[in-house]
Amino acid sequence: MRIIDLTTAGLWVAVIGLFLPGCGPRPDPSAGELVVYSTRGERFVQPLLDKFESETGTRVRALHAGGATIVNRLKAESRRPRADVIISNDVGALEHLRLRGLLRGFEPEGIESIEARYRALDNSWFALSARTRVLMFNRDLIGREEMPRSVRELADPKWKGRFAITRGGNSSMIAHVSALRREWGDEKTIDWLAAVNENAGAIMRGHGEIRRAVGAGEFAFGLVNNYYFHQQLREPRNNNVDAIYPDQEEGMMGAVVNAAGAGLIRGAPNEKDAESFLEWILLPENQREFSYASLEVPVNPRIEAVGEAAHISDYRVHDMPLSALGGVWEDTRLLIERSGLALELR
């Protein structure tokens, strides 16, 4: 009896020992580590993180996921934060987190290069690149003059099956819907969402998929951020695409603008590294990198934009201040869910 007790105990020690490496040594803060949660496309962010890693020797561990995922994860972890920095492609999500007390302000060096309307009151987040919602179309399938002039027209049954949008949980989509609510009110917005849900030829995981689908002629057009259009133009094939900035006519709401940026998590386990990362990213060459990787327009006017990008003063822009997106973030998500447009994929 004694032996079996000892040996089985040994067996269990072995099993537990196997699991220990995972829980064992928590990363030593002095070794320099940074945990980044990012809601932007992995391919746009990872090179920048690699650059930081190689320049500073700080090891970066990144989690790339959707906007709603990251925001909800940060909320779930708020009592035991695991992330240091959030990189978001939606200022609304950043401001929403700030209002919930999940971000912490500080005075990063170089912050004055960003206009006040593109950063939080306490500088707990700041935007670096701007993007506009456009309707990108395939010129083989549809002419510019046939295209809908306003996003409102996407609810028209005549477009049934001809366009693609992202799922409702996409951060750019959430921000866009917030702008529509402000312009139209909730009732109209819900009707629009339900109709678009019915009309869309496909509801896709992300904008990258939409731009390829439109480029290849799978759909006549798609609702994307403008830099996806710029990216498709640079493809060696399937690049016969064009884009219209919607709602430009007199009395229309104007195109919806959003921005991507970064924020500091309150209670970040690697605070010092997080602060140095945010100051590092404000260096002009890294600001440039941040926008160029995805062909976005830098928020800082001193950083030159990529060639094909239309300047933000060339078209009519919706007048909602970006930080107003934060207060309605959660409401908009619930409203999208209520409308029947799947936050998840259909």
């Binding site: 909800n72 896709m204 998840e344 259909r346």
Partner: peptide, 18 residues
């Protein structure tokens, strides 16, 4: 393949922390 069954619906709910 962009189809939707229980598993994908559950996955996207967990992904959205619902």
């Amino acid at each position: 393949l962009r189809y939707s069954t229980f598993t994908t619906a559950i996955y996207y709910r967990i992904d959205g922390y619902d």
